[in-house]
Design a protein around this nucleic acid. Sequence first.
RNA 1: GGAGAGAUGGCUGAGUGGUCGAAAGCGCUCCCCUGCUAAGGGAGUAUACUCCAAAAGGGUAUCGAGGGUUCGAAUCCCUCUCUCUCCGCCA
Length: 422
Amino acid sequence: MLDITFIRSNREIVKQGMLNKGEPTADAVDEVIKKDETWRQLVTEIGTLRAESNSRAREIGILMGQGKKEEAQNLIRETGEVKEKIKELEKSLDVIQKERDTLLYQIPNVPDESVPVGKTDEDNVVFSAWGEPLQQEWRLPHWELASEKNWLDFERGSKVAGAGFPFYVGALARLQRSLINFFLNEAVLHGFTEIQPPYFVNEDSARGTGQIPDKEDMMYTVPGDGFFAIPTAEVPVTNFHRDEIIEMKDMPVYYCAYTPCWRREAGSYGADVRGLNRLHQFDKVELVKFVHPDESDGELERLREYAESLLQKLDLPYRTLLMCTGDMGFTQTKKYDLEVWSPGQKRWLEVSSCSNFGSFQARRMQLRFRNEKGKTEILHTLNGSGLALPRVVASILETYQTESGDLKIPEVLIPFMGTDRV
RNA sequence: GGAGAGAUGGCUGAGUGGUCGAAAGCGCUCCCCUGCUAAGGGAGUAUACUCCAAAAGGGUAUCGAGGGUUCGAAUCCCUCUCUCUCCGCCA
């Protein structure tokens, strides 16, 4: 949610940003400003009437205290009219406010100036690249190697849960656990505080990070309890401080969390969903930052660099994309995607997405800090994957496989795996 | 799941229909005094919205949340949420 005051004084910028993000029109901006004007008028009017009603009530109290019942009765009679008027206006205010807020929720965050304007993923910019993508023809896609080794069981996954819920078996299960440990250890070394969040959240939390209204279809729900299965740890971790004021001395706040993630992924098909490319449940280590508004630009770059360093330590070639306005999503001001090379499929796989949300999420959540002057101020949030597991696993299976059909273990994972080859 | 108790400002904790946004204490900030790592005195110290060009300053709302009664509610009524205690169940 954008600040209505910001929208009022930056009408054209907000409109342009909305169009750049691919919204068909930016009419909501004009409408919300109009609604807000009416809203403010009503608030002022109601305030005045309430002031009057309050002062009369106080007078009545004093008269009663002095035993002047007659005079008090007169005043009480007169007050009825004001009360009626207030009730009436309050009803209108309620309606207007709902209309205003609905519009407000429809206006996306404004892209940063450094973000390229574009419509689709074709317009994303390759920001950087690292490593030499392997091209040998003998490399098998990860699902073939995994099948030969009995490491992945999609059939039983379907039987037990459904499509997109595979079992990881034996060495591959251990490899995932090793990656989780590696990622968490690295994050803690870089100053992130490790937390284990709930895997289900309530509606308020889903709204706080912007999953609703808009993207509730992406989440699994728990019937009867009103819970959503988290689509990413971002949801519970960012909501950790919802409705709180963080002291300046405690800023910036960095968290990392490992969780499974559940996504319905309605409408996905084809090669996209082969093997580990796209699942309904996957593991991820997520990084979340709460920072001073002046710092968020730099913090995004450091977040990106940190995520990249993980791929470098695993020695997996990757490239970093700077997402264009049309492909970046509703809530972000700027976003990088990290894509790892999949030599068995000869394609890039997204394994991390690092985003700056500015004050957009924080405002919804009333997530504030006490600034230098002791005033409360909405802070900025960022998050990034560090990293999403299945595609990293896929890339490892394809990058580290030998021509004889074994799998070498990336050096940094050997301590966790207890072996250098499986 | 059953029974009971409770939810007040950064914290502790008063307040059961009338100048209560809320006593007092603690903490914190500033000032004064004090020649010493103590003590004393004074002032200040919630959040959101809104009016005003802005500052100063007004106004409104908020005592877990929502609704109700009333001229007036932290205080009465209803619903919900959460916390604690005891019992049951349990990884």
